[in-house]
Design a protein around this nucleic acid. Structure first.
Lengths: 344, 344
DNA sequence: GCGTTGGCAGAAAGCGTTTTCTGCACAACG
DNA sequence: CGTTGTGCAGAAAACGCTTTCTGCCAACGC
């Protein structure tokens, strides 16, 4: 005869009856309120243990107006970058007793707004990860999502800190590295068109071109996964470039794989670079030259910013900027004597 | 003067006042209840839109006794296998309007019980992914976690379906493949000791050894990540084996990387196999022979099982068993003429 | 014309907590 | 001895929603 309430689950009322006290007293004991007689407190605790009472978090959330949960919206859970951010976020939040609710928009930007709103209402705060929506839309909904932290995106809306990676500087560093190796014809395998980080890369390349007018930089359409890289082999060869900047490590790996299949040597014939420095980059053959982004740390910092917002509404969180670090490995080498385009 | 209630957020009461009706009517309209006068319904909807009213999910959850959220507990969010399961689960659940709360136990088995309990109380159901806890503990807490679905683990507790991959058969298939290539000395780079899937692999190897007494199988200690494989090069060479079964693809990749650094050829000198067929396996050099597990589908099926349990308490879900499929790629080849151990 | 039904909206009772407010008992003080 | 204070537990309100129950009014049948 343990279960008393209709729902089947035992609640605070059952403990109260068992201990012969009121609901209020049970609540006080469970929350460590000291204005309760030690003897009664002990009786309540004993009853709670005996009944295996566990407070219902939903009722608690309603009363307290907080859920101890934060949400994260990502464009694609299959992307290692977002996985790493999620991991860092989850780990950091867990240390402060918060849980993470995930929402995957599957690169459908129209879904993002809805998902973000729904997630926010269930949580105490939200992390919006590289949202694909337009600047205008982002700025419009941002206020209603606060406390909100942005990753790899900025907005004019007030009180919304941003954590951004300086992809522009990153690609410049990589391009410089290739130039130092003697490459004069480069190609950039671009990422998803709606990706803000892709735009930052493009801006970086513009700056690079301005500083190095003698270097030819071809822009190639792309995406963000293996297959993009693997399928870009023809376009890459056609460009005649000897140094390829892939959008990220995945694309670079796909490209290297495709080049190997054609019997080309990396970096003997063509140098390939990635971006992000995912764990796999150290174990490719050849190991991949890339720009390391402290991705997991990014997730961790996102939590710290969000926590500041949740705890103290007034804290003006400035956000921060991360500099990628060039990791020179074995996929880049001296430029071969000038190649001519394979086709045309 | 939009916000009326003390909390700042606009609630059902504000809409009721604005539309000149009662709370109940607003609720009815918002939930598509047709026993309401169309004209009044329109007025309510107009008020809701104008006030940008969005129902508070917490209040809703408390009243309805459901959260439209499920939880998943994984031992390590950094592991691609669990990431893939999470992805499949999240995607499938999202299609039915459910969200996913994640809990990472960081391989600390004592945390699992707590995390699982907490997650369960916040959700309508739980997926326990390859839990590291003991059989006894699992069986004890399983009833309190229902609706519950297990992945890669079984329990005697009733009404808890399990989705398990037949790792035992998988390693046998791989071992057979190596034997057919002429290998007579094999080595198994084991995974985490507490991993149930590792035990299944070991059982499979025992069966294999019984069927092939002429083949020598060395057991080597290991883990589940790159570094394990990379650090196992010495032990592998020392074993004198020419065919290596790595615990999973990550370990295999680390091992291949280490072998390359020693100037050894895969598969010329040594054949290496993985397990799981993570997306990267197709893009390693050489491409990796492995046993493909439909991991994402596993997550998807987990949701289907869980959904059945949530919707109909009586549905006895049997769980299911997945057969890995051997994927022969370029990391395995004919055995070289018998090698002797490098050391000793 | 009156009683009965049925449609539809409001009142109110939950859901399971927390927390304020109320009230009792006892001690201290004038 | 009466008054004020203090400590502590219970009553009740609040959180924001759903849903049952109640009640009003009109229509219908006899």
């Amino acid at each position: 005869m343990v279960r008393k309430s209709a729902s089947g689950r035992i609640g605070i009322a059952d403990v109260a009856v068992k201990a012969g006290v009121s609901h209020a007293t049970v609540s006080r004991v469970m929350n460590g309120n000291f204005t309760v007689d030690p003897e009664i407190a002990a009786r309540v605790r004993a009853a709670a243990v005996e009944l295996k009472y566990q407070p219902n978090p939903v009722g608690r959330s309603l009363a307290l107006g907080k859920t101890d949960t934060i949400g994260i919206v990502v464009p694609d859970l299959a992307n290692p970058t977002f996985q790493a951010i999620l991991r860092g976020l989850s780990r950091a939040a867990a240390q402060d007793g918060y849980r993470v609710l995930i929402a995957d928009s599957f690169e459908v930007s129209s879904e993002e707004t809805i998902l973000a709103g729904e997630a926010r209402r269930r949580c105490d705060g939200l992390v919006l990860c590289a949202p694909r929506m337009s600047d205008a839309e982002l700025e419009e909904i941002a206020p209603s999502l606060r406390p909100l932290v942005l990753i790899n995106r900025t907005t004019a809306a007030a009180g919304v800190p941003s954590l951004v990676v300086d992809y522009g500087q990153g690609v410049q560093d990589i391009a410089e590295h290739l130039v130092e190796l003697g490459h004069t014809r480069l190609a950039f395998l671009a990422g998803p068109p709606r990706s803000a980080s892709n735009n930052l890369r493009l801006q970086g390349l513009e700056a690079f071109k301005a500083a190095h007018p003698q270097v030819e930089v071809t822009m190639l359409e792309g995406g963000s996964d293996f297959d993009t890289g693997h399928g870009a082999v023809d376009a890459v060869l056609e460009s005649g470039a000897t140094g390829i900047l892939a959008f990220n490590d995945l694309v670079a790996m796909g490209l290297m794989s495709g080049l190997h299949e054609r019997g080309l040597d990396v970096p003997g014939d063509i140098s390939v670079t990635g971006f992000d420095d995912i764990p796999f980059a150290k174990y490719t053959t050849p190991t991949l030259t890339t720009a390391a982004v402290p991705i997991t740390e990014l997730g961790e910092q996102a939590w710290h910013q969000l926590r500041a917002l949740i705890r103290n509404e007034e804290s003006d969180a400035p956000g921060s900027r991360y500099q990628p670090k060039l990791e020179v490995r074995a996929s880049t080498g001296p430029a071969k004597a000038a190649r001519t385009a394979v086709h045309g």
